[in-house]
Amino acid sequence: MKKLLLPILLLVTLVSGCLSSKKVSLPEAEMKLASEWLYAFSLENFNLNDVVIERPPGISQLLFKMKIPTENGLALKTHCVYYQVPYKKIVGKLSVEELKTDSACPESESGDSWFELDQIKKLKVTLENSHLHFDFEKDGKGISWTFLLANLEGNLIHEKYEPMKEKKWKSGLTFLRTDAETFLNQNNKSLGKLSDRMSRGTAIRCQQVDKNCNNVGENRCDDCRYGWYSIVDYNCPQGGSKFCGQNHCGEKGEPACPRGVKVVDEMDAGICQSDLTPVMNADHILICQ
């Protein structure tokens, strides 16, 4: 009976080896990441740029976080990318956990991976000109992956006589994820109506500046359905608070238009129709009365 043990062991090893080959192949892994990350709008918590990650050994750490639109583009989801540094019997592992909303990534992984690639070591991640490079070793072979982050946003560039430019892969080019749902009016959550007016009490404030020139809350002006405009309140360097909608500044009951304070006194910082006077309302906004 003992003599049968060796062949049986051989058989088991071979069968398990064959079964394990059903794991995600490298091309599949690369494609899975490339086709998602192409649409990423942001890359956050990315601190280990261009270094081979070898510490802390045996422990999983958050490499970076990405904000990516969902399949129909209606919302943002989050990819939390982790790497477990190999140490003795602990294998090196790259994993991605997908959060269904735009939220913060936990420092350590929960174990519910959307993507996992193990047996890797000497991982180096480099961000260069909107391209994210992954270099690592797997099964003794050196692997290099490059992912284009075409939508990754940098700063806006304002230059006289020129149109606006964005610091990204191609200024003015964005890849979107759409289906029929993306264009349905009932899914559109943008802010404001065309008829909104300050004088009617319907205008939506999309950015608020306080008396110390701090921005209060997040700037939602990109979500305005019909654009936005500045009003005059605290004469801050970043401008005044902003409202969504059609601008009727200068008209009766509407905010004064910004005039600046470099060539006139602060008390004259608003523009109103010549028969109206700018008056500060309870929210410290200059209104034409």
Binding site: G73, T174, L176, T182, F183, N185, N188, D222, Y226
Partner: peptide
Amino acid sequence: RYVTKSNIAHAHLNGTGYL
């Protein structure tokens, strides 16, 4: 398709353009 905030519900879209 000419898209603006008023006719597309795509998240994180700033500016208008041709799709």
